Simulated assay, not measured.
Amino acid sequence: MGNNDGDGINRRHALECMIWAGTGVLWTVAGGVPKSLSLLDDVEAAEAAKSGFTFLQISDSHVGFNKPANPHAIETLKEAIGRIDALPEKPAFLLHTGDITHSAKPVEFDDANEIIGSTRVNVHYVPGEHDITDQATENAYLERYGKGVKGGGWYSFDQHGVHFIGLNNVVNLKKFGLGFLGDEQLKWLEDDLRALSSSTPIVVFAHIPLWSIYPNWGWGTDDAAVALGYLKRFGSVTILNGHIHQLMQKVEGDVTFHTARSTAFPQPAPGEALSPGPMVVPADKLRGMLGLTSVTFKKNKSPLAIIDTSLAD
Rank of each mutant, 00 (worst) to 15 (best):
A206R: 02
T238A: 11
E89D: 10
G151M: 05
E252R: 06
T296H: 01
N113R: 05
Y214Q: 06
G229A: 07
K232Q: 15
I115L: 00
G151W: 01
Y125E: 00
L56P: 06
A305W: 03
D313M: 07
Y125S: 05
G291P: 11
G166L: 00
G82C: 05
T309C: 12
P215A: 01
N122M: 12
N122A: 15
L193V: 01
H245I: 02
V255C: 10
Y145A: 08
V251T: 13
P209C: 03
L94H: 08
I74T: 13
E184D: 12
P268F: 00
I116A: 12
A48I: 00
M248G: 13
G32C: 03
N4Y: 15
T259R: 02
L290A: 04
I58G: 12
T200R: 04
E252S: 13
E272K: 09
A46K: 11
G117Y: 05
L167G: 11
M1V: 11
N241H: 11
F164W: 04
K35L: 13
G220S: 04
D42M: 03
H72A: 14
P91N: 04
L196A: 02
E79Y: 08
D222A: 12
L286C: 07
A225G: 08
D131L: 11
A92Y: 04
D60L: 11
N172P: 09
V126G: 12
S59V: 00
W217M: 02
L210P: 14
T137Y: 11
D85E: 13
N113M: 10
F176P: 09
K175D: 04
L94D: 04
T54D: 10
G220F: 02
V255I: 11
V251A: 15
I132R: 02
L290P: 11
L247D: 11
T101Y: 03
I19T: 14
K232H: 14
F234R: 01
G177C: 05
A73T: 13
V25S: 12
M1G: 15
A283S: 14
E108H: 14
A140D: 10
E190D: 06
G220C: 02
F176H: 15
S36Q: 06
A312G: 05
S199C: 10
I239L: 06
G153W: 01
N66H: 13
K232W: 07
D313G: 14
V121Q: 10
T200L: 01
N113I: 01
K174C: 03
D42Q: 06
G24A: 10
